[in-house]
Simulated scan of single mutants.
Amino acid sequence: MSAAMDFEQAGELKIGQVGIANLRVRTLDVARLAAEMRERVERAPRLFARAAVILDFGGLPATPDAATARSLIEALRGAGVLPVALAWGSSDNEALAVELGLPLLAKFRAQYEPVAGATETAARPAPPPRQAAEPPPAPPPARAVSAPGLVQAAPVRSGQQLYAENRDLTVLSQVGAGAEVIADGSIHIYGPLRGRALAGAQGNATARIFCRAFHAELVAVAGHYKVLEDIPKELHGKPVQVWLENEELKIAALD
C-alpha cells in the first residue's frame, strides 16, 4: 500500500507588522521549501519578489547546523526572496545566527513615517500624587479601557505606512497601491483599498478589515494573509469584510 500523502505545508508563511515575512520552517526539505517560496513569488511578484524574510526555526525539533541553514538561505535566494535574519529562539539558535553572520530578531516593527491627516485623542496627563500621611485606600478593580482609535482623513499614498498601535484604525479616504495600513485592532477604510491592510498585527484573531472598494494587494488578520490573486474576481471592487475563522482568512461582500 502506498504511503499516505502529506498535504501539510513545509513552511508556514505569515506577514509581520511591516510587511516583512516570517517563514516558520517546519521541515528541512530545502528543495520543497524553495519550491513553495518560488510559487509564492510567481503568484504575487509585486509582494514577494526580493522580499525580506526572517527564518524561524522554532517549529523544528532541533536547530539545524550551519551547513543546512546556509543551503536553505541560498535556495530561498534562488527562489526570489532575501533571508535577512533569524527569529529569536534557543541558545543554539543564537550561536547559529552568529555563525551565519545574521541578526536575531525577537520583534520587528518599523518606525512609521507620519502621514498627513492622522488625528487622535491626546492622552491626559497623569494627576500629581496625593500627599497623605496615611496609605491611600485600595482602588476599585480597574476596568478595561479601549484606547481611542486612530483616524486618518487624508489618502494614504504609495510608499507610506500608517500604524495604529493597540487600537483600531479608520481611514476616511483611500489607501493607494504600494501603501500599507496596519492596526493591532480592526481597520475600517471608507474608500478604495489598493495597497496592503494588516489587522490584528499583535495576534488579535478577532480583528477585522472593512473597506468600500476592494482592490487590495494583500490583506492579513493576525498574520494569516491573502493576496489579490487569491480573491474571487466577483469581490474585486466591492465592499467587503475580512476576518479570521478557525485559522482561515475569510473574505465576503458586505450587504
Rank of each mutant, 00 (worst) to 15 (best):
A118D: 11
L198I: 11
A147Q: 14
P148H: 07
A216L: 01
R194T: 10
N204E: 08
E245W: 09
A179N: 01
M37I: 12
P232S: 03
I182Q: 13
I231V: 12
V18S: 15
R32M: 13
A164Y: 04
G89K: 05
V171R: 02
T170Y: 09
A69Q: 01
G176S: 12
G237V: 00
G159L: 00
A154V: 03
P45Q: 06
G80V: 02
A201N: 12
G176D: 14
A126S: 15
P141V: 09
R24V: 06
A62N: 09
S90V: 06
A153G: 11
G203Q: 04
A132S: 15
R38H: 11
L169N: 02
Q9E: 15
V240S: 09
R26N: 09
K238L: 10
V219H: 05
A144F: 14
F7E: 11
L235F: 06
N246T: 13
L105T: 02
P61T: 02
A164F: 03
R77V: 08
A197G: 06
E217S: 07
A49T: 07
E134W: 13
G195L: 00
A75G: 03
L169W: 05
L33E: 00
M5L: 14
L55S: 09
P135K: 06
P141Y: 00
V30A: 02
E180L: 15
L96S: 01
F210G: 15
T206G: 15
E36K: 08
E134H: 12
K107G: 12
V25I: 12
R124S: 14
T68H: 03
V115A: 02
G78I: 07
L13Y: 11
G78R: 04
V115M: 01
G58Y: 00
A79E: 01
P125C: 05
A95K: 14
A205K: 11
Q152H: 01
M37A: 08
N246S: 13
Q17V: 15
F7Q: 10
V181R: 02
G80M: 05
I231C: 08
Y112L: 12
E74Y: 09
A34G: 07
R50H: 14
A164G: 07
A154H: 08
I73C: 04
M5S: 15
P128E: 11
D184R: 06
P83C: 01
G58L: 00
F210Q: 15
E8T: 14
E229H: 15
A144K: 12
E165F: 11
V18N: 15
Q161I: 08
A222I: 10
D6A: 10
S71W: 04
L102C: 06
R212W: 08
P83Q: 02
H215R: 13
V175Y: 07
